[in-house]
Amino acid sequence: MITPFLEFLQFEKRASAHTIKSYQTDLEQFQKYLLFQYECNEPETAKAPMLRSWVVSMMEEGLNPSSINRKIAALRTFYGYLRKKKHIDSDPTKILSALKTRKKLPAFVEEKSMELLFEEGVFSEDFSGLRDRVIMELLYGSGIRLSELVELELKDLNLPARTIRVFGKRAKERIVPVSTSLAQLLHKYTEQRAPEEDTDVLLLTDSNKAIYPVFVQRKVKQYLSAVTTLSQKSPHVLRHTYATHLLNRGADLNAIKELLGHANLAATQIYTHNSIEKLKKTHQQAHPKA
């Protein structure tokens, strides 16, 4: 029943390819565990103790609690689907509880470091350098996700209006504003971009093929390594940086939520913790009785 479930996610829930792949990986791991431990090859026939046993085995292996929670969430969605389709009578995931995890503040790059990144001489003067700058400025200047960046097409640009159209999770569309300088940079890039008959994707590799996630991750790590000592140097760090800098400069939390494409405010509120920590630091440094 795993394949029909994945098709349900793709065609009915319109989940992203990354989400579907994660569910597939988790469920296939669970299926292998059932076969090895219980000689059971059909997850829909698994009983609640079998699910608990899998969770315990992952804990004993020392798997990160957040990773285990993700797998528990995958099981809940899968068995919820089976129940909805009347393939099972009861949900065996009801006995499972999420593990406690330490909440980490989102890592972000300081404003001065981002200013250094976009100084003259950092990016080469050829097309590759121009494309790399567009990648970095789009991630930092619009806060879009890696998957959203990779899927951007030429038709998603509205440079006169200084906006880009983005398709987020579950193919939800949103319009994101960009600065005048970024709009000008995008205009310059599109003029130099080689016309390709087989793709309308905005960003291309040096061989004029559509960019892909690992390509972007390598570029981000390369350029961030020049301006920050953060251990995390990923596209998502630039998304965190975008949100944190907006909040630090007085942007409304609800507006940031819409810009990021979050489904609810709770997901956005994590950025307030960074601002509170900054305020505490300022208080300790400046107040006579701190």
Rank of each mutant, 00 (worst) to 15 (best):
D156I: 00
A183M: 12
V220E: 03
R218P: 02
A194D: 13
K209E: 12
L203D: 00
P235L: 06
A210D: 08
V178Q: 05
D156Y: 11
V201L: 07
T199I: 12
Y242H: 08
L202R: 09
H187E: 15
S234D: 13
Q192G: 10
I256A: 02
K172L: 00
L154N: 14
L204N: 02
F167Q: 06
K209N: 06
T180F: 07
F215A: 07
F167N: 09
L253I: 02
E173S: 10
T163G: 13
L185I: 11
H240T: 04
E151Y: 08
R170Y: 12
L186M: 12
V166P: 02
A171G: 10
L238P: 01
E191Q: 04
R170F: 09
R193A: 13
L238N: 04
H236K: 00
D198I: 03
Q217P: 04
E148M: 01
Y242S: 09
D200R: 14
A171R: 06
L149M: 04
T163P: 06
A194F: 09
T190K: 12
N158W: 12
K233C: 05
S231F: 09
A255Q: 07
K209S: 13
R239G: 05
V216H: 05
T244P: 11
E196F: 09
T228M: 02
Y189Q: 01
I211Y: 08
P177Y: 07
R170E: 06
V166M: 08
L157N: 15
T199F: 15
G250F: 04
T190H: 11
A251I: 04
N254Q: 15
E191T: 05
E196V: 12
A243W: 04
P160H: 05
E173C: 07
L159S: 14
A183G: 13
R218Q: 12
K219A: 13
L152G: 01
T205D: 07
L204Y: 01
N248T: 15
E196P: 10
V216R: 06
V214L: 12
A251H: 00
T229L: 07
T241N: 06
T244Y: 03
A194K: 14
F167Y: 06
V216F: 10
G168F: 04
L247Q: 10
